[in-house]
Design a protein around this nucleic acid. Structure first.
Lengths: 75, 75
DNA sequence: TGCTTATGTAGACTATAGTCAGTAGACCTG
DNA sequence: CAGGTCTACTGACTATAGTCTACATAAGCA
């Protein structure tokens, strides 16, 4: 599995778990909704800062997010 | 402290701890040496993929790298 | 039906990640 | 002193992160 795809899956997982829409996540993270959409589908990869604001919006730690990406990549 | 600066400090810390030069790290991670230099000085921020290849070259986990960035940001 | 919410997707755009070639200075050591 | 190593820094370049506007579709609900 590619990194982008793994991150996208983790992102969507967390967002759905928090019961918020892409639009709400975009608002909370000050990112564009279409960009969130592309991230979730693995069409884009985030920068360091983006990882931090997304983790914050999802009420988790950036390292936790990355850790779950690592887990996906090991499979 | 800004995220870029914190990441740069962690990166340099790890690299020096592993006793390798910027040039060697650049070779191991397939990145440009000048870019490594800018990262360490907080002049640039890495993308997700870059975080992973750097962690790999430094023989650590990406989540570990990020975790140390978080620590620096809390201070 | 028609209205709303959620998401995918496209195109054009700006900002910045990442490359490449080169110069300069600090620090060693022969 | 000259020679190697390491790093800071620049400018020009290409690739891509991230924005914005807009349209399309599917699901659910009055």
């Amino acid at each position: 599995m590619e990194i982008d795809k793994a991150f996208g899956e983790v992102l969507k997982q967390k967002r759905v778990h928090n019961s918020i829409s892409q639009e709400e996540l975009a608002y909370l993270s000050n990112l564009d909704r279409t960009f969130i959409s592309m991230l979730e589908r693995g069409k884009r990869q985030p920068s360091l800062k983006t990882i931090f604001v997304l983790a914050d919006a999802l009420e988790t730690l950036p390292s936790q997010l990355i850790s779950e990406v690592e887990k996906k990549l090991k499979l």
